[in-house]
Write a protein that binds this DNA or RNA. Sequence first.
RNA 1: GGCGACAUAGCCAAGUGGUAAGGCAGGGGUCUGCAAAACCCUUAUUCCCCGGUUCGAAUCCGGGUGUCGCCUCCA
Length: 473
Amino acid sequence: MPIRVHNTLTGRKEEFVPLRGQEVGMYTCGPTVYDYIHIGNARCLVAHDVIRRYLEYRGYKVTYVQNFTDIDDKMINRAHKLGWTVAQVAEKYINEYFADADALGIKRADVHPRATEHIEDMRRLVENLIKKGHAYEVGGDVYYDITTFKEYGKLSHQKLDELAAGSRVAVEDKKRNPMDFVLWKKQKPGEPAWDSPWGKGRPGWHLECSAMSMRYLGETFDIHAGGADLIFPHHENEIAQSEAATGKPFARYWIHNAYLNIEGEKMSKSLGNFLLVHDLRQKYDPEVIRFFLISAHYRSPLNFTEEGLSSAQSALQRLRNTVDNLEYHRQHSEREWMSDREKEYLPRLRQAREEFIQAMDDDFNTADALAALFDLNREVNTHLSGGISRELATRILDTYHELGEVLGILVQDRVEQQAGSEMTEELIKLLLEVREDARRAKDWPTADKIRDRLGELGVTVEDTPQGSRWKLS
RNA sequence: GGCGACAUAGCCAAGUGGUAAGGCAGGGGUCUGCAAAACCCUUAUUCCCCGGUUCGAAUCCGGGUGUCGCCUCCA
């Protein structure tokens, strides 16, 4: 079964066939590192991370490139405000980016190129475009002449005159056409700048992604991903720059995720509803945030609400409980090997995997994939109540970890929490022994007191047919 | 004005021609000393509205209504 991907370029779901066999080149537009990332960024990151993980799961060797925009107006403004250099701002927020992204379980890219490290690539690209008549220099600025690229608008599916008609861009005398965009910006006083044939200046924003993606993935590569708002003008311009320069197709599959709203409203500075991952993860388990973000398909708009998050928390907890129980059986079950009856369960395990794969094959339908996981979960719980062998528990756990790994949830070290020290664990065990004695003596007040007090300390006690268990809550 | 999405139970959300997944919340029950966890049952004769195509439509077509996004920096 082939993977099917919705391609913005064609507006359709297409069979995914990489350019070079099992090798996939994937580029995703990373953050401008002038501030902490927000929950909208997180949606992108998670969506793309899942796509990458799934392609890898399906046996592709993915070269994943995500840039950092470390020079532009926002960077410069921020630096002025803080009294820092632009480079200091970049350093600070690149570090913060990794702290947030790591917490969300985003795998690091193979390459995290920075715009300022690729000035030379960009300069060459501009020179090339000028030479080919696609760009022109006016007083130290260089613009792209969009009338020279006949296919301009093919990604956003708009015609040039339609774009121009709706354009709110202030007409600048320097431009030949109002829709022309800047490739190279002349330096203003106090701004960082690099030498160029057109004088000191800095690259335009759209340029960096063209330069860096082609640098690491080649002139034509497989996947380019980003938020839906980047379709126009950013990605449209990338195509114009790249294809005009090389005469070859640029990215083959364009993947765009829908927006995330906050309590029904667009996230914006003016509404004051900017939710930063940095703040959010003080309050919520990052894996819960991640679960919430994959609970809807990446191309559906998603509304971020407290209620939604709490719902995600409960749903994820349901899966975690089962994993915890499986883990308990894997370690403590009296039976080592599968019974014949248990062996009959293995095909069902394979079936769950198949359903999961089928959902993900269909344009990375994480919501549907989760449903497959929950279907399995219910059945596993049913079997679990009677106790299962260590072998079967291990086999089921393997499946959970295998599929959880694709979605980046149910991460092992989060499940196998330790109490902190051996001493603490021994003390908990001691208390449970005392409680067990009390229960046998039907001294319920004592038994309940121990359970309640442990609960207050963050230790959940559960009585099962196989005995009492504890875990950190 | 142009382009484009979306509209499925209390909430979230899958489902692109064959008779409505899954999760959360709620109700009832089983298990339990009581809990917790779990399991079972239950909550949409119906998928924004109106037409049409079809043996058959949430799914396709036409029209309407509503919400949103993009067309300007923005994930």
